[in-house]
Simulated scan of single mutants.
Amino acid sequence: MENKRRPGRSRSAEVGEVRTLERGLHLLETLSEAETLSLSELARKTELSPSTAYRLLETLRRRGFVDWDEGKGLWKVGLRAYQVGSAFLTRGGLVDAALPEMERLVDELNETVNLAVLDGNEAVYIAQVEGRQLIRMFTRIGARAPLYCTGVGKALLMEHPEAEVRRILGSGPLKAFTAHTLTSPTAFLKALSEAKAKGYALDNEEREDGVRCIATPVRDSRGKVVASMSLSAPASRVPDERVERLGRRVKQAADAVSARLGWAEL
């Protein structure tokens, strides 16, 4: 059989390149699980020498797959990795799994339903099915929103440890968008704890006056929160007495999406 290997390339060189790729992917996977890590932490978790880890990270950084925060001395996943991952989300993955449930919710409740993912300290909207009422909510696909004052943002943070949430929020007061915005990290953490107990999060006119959103997490096959689904409507159509029932219904829809992604609730 004719040897298809290119001239001048040994088997050992090819094996070495595959090994380098595996190590680079391992670094990316480790960063995605911890969000930010120092070089020494990354080297320890991936069982690489600091010098090897640094060389691989620099290559990934030049390609945009990781970012380096010089001030904090921490590495994190870069925008390019998100863009590559988005190809799965939009082509036969998360969005395709979510759209039938989103459409079903809109048919039933006639309010706009959104799907968002986490990117750094913001939520990014990746899909929407609009309600059919004359006055309805609209969000541009690809738009970004703060985590602390949106339903989708709260839902994305519901499974994060308190220390990680505090790191994302920062130490200072949070920007107020309305009189209802929770500007204290402590107040936000209390609301997040209540949301986790209920199974859904509420944006109570915290980003826009007159708008309420109810959101709940979407999980992958490992149970990790990969997105959040929300129902958005004028506050007049989401009075206090409807919040719990709507929250249960949105959670039911999000859980059905999670099941399509392979998650089985214990």
Rank of each mutant, 00 (worst) to 15 (best):
L56S: 14
G120A: 10
T59M: 03
G93E: 04
E130Y: 11
V95E: 06
V84P: 08
L99Q: 10
D67G: 07
T52H: 14
S40K: 02
T52C: 11
V77I: 10
A127S: 07
S51L: 14
T46F: 01
E33L: 09
G64M: 03
E47Y: 12
S86N: 06
L57Q: 04
E122V: 14
E33W: 09
R91V: 01
L74R: 10
G93T: 04
E29G: 12
D119N: 12
A43Q: 11
P50V: 04
E70M: 08
M102E: 11
L115C: 02
A98N: 02
V66K: 00
L56A: 15
L25D: 07
E103I: 09
I126M: 06
R63L: 15
W68V: 07
T52Q: 13
R23Y: 10
Q133D: 15
G93Q: 08
Y54D: 15
L37F: 09
I126C: 02
E41D: 10
A87L: 15
V124K: 09
F65H: 04
Y82T: 07
D69G: 10
G24I: 08
T112R: 01
E103S: 11
R44D: 14
H26T: 08
R61F: 04
R44G: 05
T30E: 07
R91W: 06
A43P: 10
T46W: 03
V106Y: 04
S86Y: 02
E33G: 10
L105G: 07
S49L: 07
V117C: 01
A116S: 06
R61W: 05
L94C: 06
N121K: 08
D119K: 14
V106H: 03
F88Q: 02
K76M: 15
T59L: 01
L109D: 14
T59H: 10
A98Y: 01
V113K: 00
V84W: 01
A53M: 05
E122S: 15
E29S: 14
A43M: 13
L57C: 08
